[in-house]
Nucleic acid binder design. Structure first.
Lengths: 209, 209
DNA sequence: CTAACTTTGTGAAATCCATCACGTTTTTTG
DNA sequence: CAAAAAACGTGATGGATTTCACAAAGTTAG
């Protein structure tokens, strides 16, 4: 594993974005790309892109740019694109349903393999090709997925989280407004939709561009 | 307007989060709260919370903490909670529908007032209390909303964005994987669901906790 | 009232990140 | 082939943010 453990987190967060755009270029048949072109596409400063890539060594050639196929293969390896990460989704409400129907597998190595909900009307059905099980059977039916998407009502968030952690989940994408507590070995990414909307509104009013 | 234009962006992004938790405390009848307690609740370091608050002056009292009601009133003013920001939603697919059904107005000063889609079957209906209009009538029916939520297919993203910008929208919450181009006077926040999921997977594999 | 305790607000240090600026290498053009 | 242009990789810089750590001020208990 880790050749390079020293990649800045900010860089790591951009890698999947780079990967997607490089893949698009590849599909379009482009052979080479410069940091400037990539910058226009992903809206990240070209110097930042070069810096990001440089953490992995010299991927480009001076005066030429980057070879698209080479870059793509590199990112595929780095992002483990050949190995699918299996994901469980907890809470098949509006948002959960949207994710199940969303085709995450397009340019993506993550796949929702099972969903859980407390609503008996949903249990046993399939949504977006994913079977829905009862939340009571969580421990029994979640297999060995290590990542969970949490789209339950906030009140349930901590309780479910505790069960997920107990079951060995090591990453949680939390869409509930609740800030959940986990042991230090578990990573949580929060996506708080109303905070995003409110902070956008705040920026608009107080940080005129 | 701006008494203090010098609040760090990182702080500004946390304000809505603080607001929500302080509101919860208020509803629970708590009279005071320390930065340490708040830290446990929102999972932000207590020194960071104190620093954040300090940009607005001395909101607390040494040895005591912060008076919940006072804090709440302060944040309500600061975040313009009394003035609702009207929002338009473009693209009533799975994700868009989820947002329409989601009750954004709970502890929130933003409200989706109109939605647009190209599907004639949806046009004229109401979802989550929000009327759906045809995308062709965008200019005519969006009133003077200044914020838009973009949940259209990526291919449409740039075209719709151009029309929104032309119509005077100054903030866009972009849920499409496309990186849209806007003039420098328009603020865009990207929420890229598959990037979030992939980067979480990457962190899990490469940044063991 | 005093002593022990609590908690803020903030200098100072540390960290993290983005960007500039340019030497170097390669490509392209004439 | 020579000169001009393109574009990388990176040292250095500056800016933003987080965190430490502690004096000052207030609270609580006896």
């Amino acid at each position: 594993m880790g050749d390079e453990m020293k990649i800045p987190q900010a860089t790591a967060k951009r890698l999947p974005l780079y990967y997607r755009f490089i893949n698009n270029l590849y599909l379009q048949g482009k052979l080479r790309v410069s940091s400037k072109e990539l910058s226009d596409a992903v809206k990240v400063d070209s110097a930042t892109i070069r810096r990001d890539f440089s953490y992995f060594g010299a991927l480009g050639k001076k005066g030429y740019g980057y070879n698209v196929e080479h870059l793509l293969q590199f990112f595929r390896r780095t992002l483990d694109q050949d190995e699918t990460t299996e994901v469980a989704l907890i809470g098949v409400g509006n948002l959960g349903t949207a994710f199940l129907n969303y085709n995450f597998m397009k340019n993506n190595n993550t796949k929702i393999v099972v969903a859980f909900d407390a609503n008996d009307r949903l249990v046993g059905t399939e949504i977006g090709g994913v079977p829905v099980a009862h939340i009571d059977d969580l421990e029994e039916k979640m297999g060995n997925v290590s990542v969970a998407i949490l789209t339950v009502p906030s009140q349930e968030a901590q309780g479910i989280t505790d069960r997920l952690v107990e079951r060995g989940v090591s990453g949680i994408l939390n869409f509930t407004p609740a800030r959940i507590s986990v042991p230090p070995t578990v990573r949580v990414h929060h996506i708080d939709l109303s905070v995003e909307l409110q902070s956008l509104a705040y920026f608009l009013k107080h940080y005129p561009l």
